[in-house]
Structure formats: C-alpha cells, structure tokens
Amino acid sequence: MTEPGALVSMQGIVKRFGAVEALRGVDLDLGQGEVLGLVGDNAAGKSTLMKTLTGVHQPDAGRVFFEGRPVHFRNPHDSRARGIEMIYQDLALVPSLDVVANVFLGREKTRRLLGGLVRQLDERAMEAATWDVVRRLRINMDSVRKPVSLYSGGQQQAVAIGRAMSFNARVIVMDEPTAALAVREVGKVLDLVRDLKGHGVSVILISHRLQDVFAVADRVMVLYGGTNVGVRRVAETTMDEIVRLIVGAGERVS
C-alpha cells in the first residue's frame, strides 16, 4: 500500500467527533520533494486529516509513518520536531512585528550578557538568518525590518513559508495559500512552492483552486465525505475528472 520511499505515510486513518465520523479510513502517501494537492468539498475531511498529521488531533484508528517508522504526534510540537510544519490560512503572523521577529517568533536567537546573567535578543544573527531564507526562497523583499502588515498578502505568505523553512521543515502543509491573494500574487506563491520542491521539501497543498493544484502538484488526492476517493498523477488526469471526484460522482477507488 505504501509507495516505496514515502516520507510520510498515513494508513487507515479514522477520526470521529462524537457521532460524526470525519475520517473513515484514509490513506495518504507523500514522497520526498513531492507536491501533493489535497482537494475536496467543505467538510470532506481535508483539515481534519492535516490536523491529524500535525498532532492537533489524535486518530481513533490508523497509523502514521515518517521515514518508514511509526510515529505518534501528541501535539504540534511533536510533529514540528520531525520537520512537519503547517501554515494556516490566517498565517499566524503578528502584523505589527517585522519579518525577522515573525520568522523567529517563539524561538528567538539570544546571546548572553553580563557573564550569562541575562539574555538579549541576537538581532544581527536573526536578521542574517532571515536574509538567508529570503534569498534561498528568492522572496522579493527590500527590507526584513518592516512590520509584516505593510507587505502584500503574497509576501506575508512568503514570510510564513520562510518561517516554516527556517525550522528546517521537511514537510510543509499549506492551507489555501492562494485563496486570499490578488491574481498577480498567486503565481509568485506557486513559484515558492516549486522552489520548496527544488530544495527537497515535501508540500501538501490544500486548495479549492484546481488550476493552482494542477500548476504545481505532482499528484492530487481527493477526499469526499471523509474517504479518499482517488489519487491521480496530475499528468494523467484532467480537471473534469477531479471535479467529478470532488462532488462524489466518480467511481470509488482505494
């Protein structure tokens, strides 16, 4: 069932909320450096599946493998420790803080002062590291010292991705990264996804915008009513087929 060499493999994931069965035995495989589109109607189980992967939810049944070994993520800290980062749609940035502060929020670099008595933020080191990420991802940004609220939605998305990258992320889950963006910014964010892939980072892209998924994803996986109703290579499918699967009109597989 598991593709050989899958970085992440979720098998038979079941998640219930009271009487509601949100996930009914879902399988998911993600290869190293692969971009997987995750699509489905509202309440199809996309978010629940990703929250199970990142440790926000614990599955009621099923197993998760990372690099072939079984893992149990009790909370997002556990999954983050393995290099799995989730970028939520609201990005979880602090608008009034600058790019550097946002990238390093919660794990600031500090240096000791007065013989180790106190710790002071090491702004120089954090700024240099931020520029490294900005260059690596080729983010178009003239300053990392401006509050992120002054940047466009696409640039803020880039900051959130840069933050994930500076955690040495190996898997980045992006929840609707292009939904709130101006048209001309969508292409830039998709370029970023390709860059991540180029750096060997695996990406799970949750999106309602099929044209975005088809532009960057290697494979696309469709959820319907908490079930995996199909996985297709993007090169071997059409938007029509995917739309049929999303609305539940396709034949069930797997």
Binding site: P76, H77, Y88, D90, L91, A92, L93, V94, P95, S96, L97, A101, L105, G106, R107, E108, T110, V118, R119, Q120, L121, E123
Partner: peptide
C-alpha cells in the same frame, strides 16, 4: 525591545493566536 519577553509582549498584543501557535 531587546529580550524575548519583550518580543512576546508585542506578540500577545498583536495576535494572541499567533503567539500561542508559536509555542509562547
């Protein structure tokens, strides 16, 4: 301005959800 504590004071006031998500 120069300590993690100060940074978190801004973060809590600017976007508390983001501060919590960042593990603060």
């Amino acid at each position: 301005r120069r300590t993690s504590f100060g940074r978190y004071v801004y973060a809590m006031g600017g976007n508390e959800a983001a501060a919590i998500a960042a593990g603060i």
